[in-house]
Design a protein around this nucleic acid. Structure first.
Length: 675
DNA sequence: CTTAGGG
DNA sequence: CCCTAAG
């Protein structure tokens, strides 16, 4: 009981605090629990808030979230400690029932095994194979998504359930709120007692949407409001906490580093289920992991049908690396970026002598499709080729250097503004005043002969201006570019291309250029893991596909407006390595607990259990972390790096590891016997 | 999509 | 953390 009381108390405190924060959350008030350390919690939160501000100077987007997470984390940590003390008590009572899932260390061996079995067996039953890997995934999904309807109850110790019922708000909402309010972690502990129940609760939260999407908002300023409102959508109260949940688990967020990182969150956000259904159609396999990640991002962004246009990292790499494999030798004249649009657009050499007609001729531009509605000529550009990207590198340069160089070159090309040249039947159209019809770009669709060329704004050729060019430029403001949180190129996402007549160089060209010249976004000064992200990954420039929107004729003389076709307009294909986000002790704690319960072969479940709302922290991450934990535990303390993990935790890691390893072995033998 | 491992 | 083979 002590445990729950504390939990409730803390929750109440948190809520209280939130109220103060003008984000009203009352649900838990009902609990009327004694208040403990409220002051402290609040202090912490405030402190962090203050701190976070400066940090967010350039990364305003994630501000809210971070604050939240911080606060949440803080609260969490405290909770953990408190609960720790109570542990013994609750443990004892549970033991009486003989089914304490969450045994204190002392009871570890006993309690651990029992509950685990209880939880594990049911699943096996379902699967004749009984292999760890053969578990019924659906089942877990169901559990998670549908609270109690699932047979999982079997796994819940009776007494614990009772406890839960009585001590915890009966109201589902309350539970949810509690959960969402980052008391979550606390719940994990509770979870031990009633794992499934909690599990069931968590799912909704997972996708609660919170802020992941926000970062993509076009207007940084509005972000805060937007995000908060969004969060509210999901759950009226707990705006702040809610947001915190995201990073909540990563109490590490307390460390400066975490503040800087958020980009990756976005990628991983999404309920597994949702993902399946949403993007199920897309063959990730085909596109590769990179795309996968990207995909999720996109989902976050607001899944669009254009997904296919996204460049998979793999793909990009392949293309480029293949083409460019011989660093010192000649680079291929053209780098083909194959998107799935319908028209190919080629760029002409950045500094070649004007446009090489060769380039033009090779314009395999096919404007295959041109649907017309009314008088609108709709064009979509399938892909474009970047010809003659000149890159010179010493033989000593590494592949990474090569990549970077190529990327820089490409970014130079695309990063600034580009000229769009329209070619019809291989001929440049110089008279911009012509209507599409006049020019022969009509509904009748001879669009097959319509070609586009992208040319660097800095095109040396004098003729560039005014002879049929359009300036293709990113109208993003500097600010946008600097948001670290949007490192995945999302920043660019918010930008839109627009076409205007060429009037000399657009301002900001240099700035933009410089921003992009680095392989990574100049994400303000705060980007800690800058180097990590930096570049060995070749980022394919450009949202290579552009759509010509007749409707936006006002943007350009010739009635063509270019707007981003893909989600990733500026197209810095999101190939970056994810930001490094060291696990905090609190996270490790949660992980360990989860593994103790679920074992080492069910990482997805572990994820769902322990880090349901942490968009970063995929099950693979958890698996990896466990691996490192096991390793860490086996090495001398002085050889360990990073935030020191309490030996106690490591001991548990070892125990759990050995236990589950043994279990697995047993499993195997059993199966062999059966066979 | 998940697991399990290697890198 | 990333990448992948298997399932």
């Amino acid at each position: 009981m002590c445990f729950f009381e504390l939990l409730a108390t803390v929750a109440g405190q948190i809520l209280q605090q939130q109220d103060e924060d003008a984000l009203n959350a009352r649900p838990l008030v009902d609990l009327e629990m004694p208040k403990i350390n409220t002051e402290r919690v609040q202090d912490n939160s405030t402190t962090y808030d203050l701190e976070s501000d400066p940090r967010d100077v350039s990364g305003g987007t994630m501000k809210l979230n971070r604050e939240d997470s911080i606060t949440a984390t803080k609260g969490l940590v405290q909770l953990s400690h408190t609960s720790g003390t109570c542990y013994e008590h609750s443990g004892n009572s549970s033991l009486e029932d003989g089914s304490d899932p969450l045994p204190p260390h002392k009871h570890y061996s006993k309690s651990l095994i029992k509950p685990i079995k209880a939880a594990y067996l049911p699943r096996k039953r379902k699967h004749s194979a009984a292999l760890p890997g053969g578990r019924n995934k659906r089942q877990s999904d169901q559990c998670t998504s549908k609270a109690k309807s699932v047979p999982l109850h079997e796994e819940i110790p009776v007494h614990s359930r009772d406890l839960e019922e009585t001590t915890i708000p009966n109201n589902e909402n309350d539970m949810e709120q509690l959960y969402s309010s980052n008391v979550v972690t606390k719940f994990h502990e509770i979870d031990f007692v009633t794992p499934l129940r909690l599990d069931a609760e968590s799912p909704p939260l997972v996708s609660s949407g919170s802020s992941e999407e926000t970062p993509f908002s076009l207007k940084p300023k509005s972000y805060l409001t937007a995000s908060s409102s969004r969060q509210n959508e999901g759950r009226d109260e707990f705006c702040s906490w809610k947001g915190g949940d995201e990073d909540g688990n990563s109490s590490e967020s307390m460390a400066p580093n975490s503040f800087l990182t958020t980009s990756s969150d976005v990628k991983y956000s999404r309920a597994m289920k949702e993902q399946r259904s949403t993007s199920g159609t897309t063959k990730r396999r085909a596109t590769g992991a990179g795309v996968k990640r990207k995909h999720s991002e996109m989902e976050d962004l607001k899944e669009s049908p254009n997904a296919k246009v996204q460049y998979g990292r793999k793909k990009a790499n392949k293309l480029l690396s293949k083409d460019i494999d011989q660093p010192t030798t000649n680079l291929p004249k053209q780098l083909l970026i194959d998107t799935k649009s319908e028209i190919n657009v080629y760029t002409s050499p950045a500094n070649g002598e004007g446009e090489k007609d060769t380039g033009v001729s090779s314009l395999a531009t096919r404007s295959s499709t041109a649907k017309m509605e009314d008088t609108n000529v709709k064009l979509s550009i399938k892909s474009f080729t970047v010809p003659e990207l000149m890159v010179a590198l010493p033989e000593s340069a590494t592949i990474a250097n090569l990549k970077k160089a190529v990327m820089e070159a490409a970014m130079k090309l695309l990063g600034g503004s580009l000229h769009v040249r329209v070619l019809l039947q291989g001929k440049k159209i110089t008279d911009e005043s012509k209507s599409l019809r006049q020019a022969g770009i009509s509904i009748d669709g001879k669009l097959d002969s319509l070609d586009f060329m992208l040319e660097p704004n800095s095109f040396p050729t004098s003729s560039s201006v005014g002879d049929g060019f359009l300036v293709l430029s990113q109208n993003n403001n500097q600010q946008t570019l600097r948001y670290p949180a949007l490192s995945e190129g999302n920043e660019i996402n918010s930008d839109s291309f627009h076409v205007g007549t060429i009037q000399g160089k657009p301002q900001g060209f240099h700035e933009i250029d410089s921003n992009n010249s680095g392989s990574e976004m100049q994400s303000g000064a705060e980007r800690p893991a800058k180097n990590n992200v930096a570049g060995n990954e070749l980022v394919v420039p450009g949202p290579c596909a552009l759509v010509i929107h007749p409707n936006q004729a006002h943007n350009s003389p010739n009635g063509l407006a270019v707007v981003p076709f893909s989600q990733n307009p500026a197209g810095v294909s999101t190939n970056k390595r994810r930001m490094r986000r060291p696990f905090s002790v609190a996270e490790v704690e949660v992980l360990v607990q989860a593994v103790e319960k679920l074992g080492t072969g069910r990482w997805r479940d572990v994820k769902l259990h322990a880090f349901p709302q942490a968009k970063h922290r995929t099950y693979v991450d958890l698996k990896d972390k466990w691996k490192t934990l096991v390793h860490t535990a086996s090495i001398a303390p002085h050889q360990r790096r990073g935030e020191p993990v309490p030996q106690g935790l490591l001991d548990r890691v070892i125990q759990a590891h050995s236990y589950w390893t043994a279990q697995q072995a047993k499993q195997q033998t059993v199966e062999l016997k059966i066979l």
